[in-house]
């Protein structure tokens, strides 16, 4: 079922960052280095975050940054955790701030094809055990294996 596999090269744990730009940049650069996205991706994720923020006040707060598929070569997902929570604005209520403890940067080429995967993601967001496992992860290969299992 998993159309978008997690990949060790697209994960960075315990990022030291003061702001969301830094986290998004680190994760976008990984997607760029692996050839999944275009040069324009990072800038457009940020731009979109200003207009349609993606902070979610989930059990462990997170952000699910993304942008239009024109900035994407092929679908992939990058994931990062931070050493201290980073401020994002809340999806649907931009005047509220979410202190995100983990960030997904999602690059989708044909989003309609990923609908079941996106729906699976929604159930994962509500699972406290899964969220705390990935938030507390210290080993990249372990967390990638775990994420691919829970999304399978």
């Amino acid at each position: 079922m998993s159309f978008v596999e997690f990949n060790e090269k697209l994960v960075e744990l315990r990022i030291k960052a003061e702001d969301k730009e830094t986290v998004i940049k680190i994760l976008s650069d990984k997607l760029l280095a692996e050839g999944f996205v275009k040069d324009s991706f990072f800038e457009n994720v940020l731009k979109r975050e200003e207009v349609f923020p993606t902070g979610l006040p989930t059990i462990i707060p997170m952000a699910i940054c993304h942008t239009e598929s024109e900035h994407v070569h092929s679908s992939a997902i990058a994931f990062g955790t931070v050493t201290s929570p980073v401020a994002f604005q809340e999806m649907g209520t931009p005047e509220r701030t979410v202190m995100a403890e983990m960030v997904f940067v999602i690059a989708l080429k044909n989003p309609k094809d990923q609908v079941p995967w996106l729906q699976k993601m929604m159930t994962v967001f509500k699972d406290e055990e899964i969220l705390s496992t990935i938030r507390n992860a210290t080993d990249v290969s372990e967390v990638v294996r775990y994420l691919n299992e829970v999304f399978d």
Binding site: R48, V51, F52, T54, I64, H66, T67, E68, M91, I106, L108, P111, K112, Q114, V115, L118, Q119, M121, M122
Partner: peptide, 16 residues
């Protein structure tokens, strides 16, 4: 409805 027209709207589609 969502900012991309796809990502979170797809998530809530099945739910609806």
């Amino acid at each position: 409805v969502c900012g991309s027209g796809v990502v979170s709207s797809s998530m809530i589609e099945q739910k609806l």
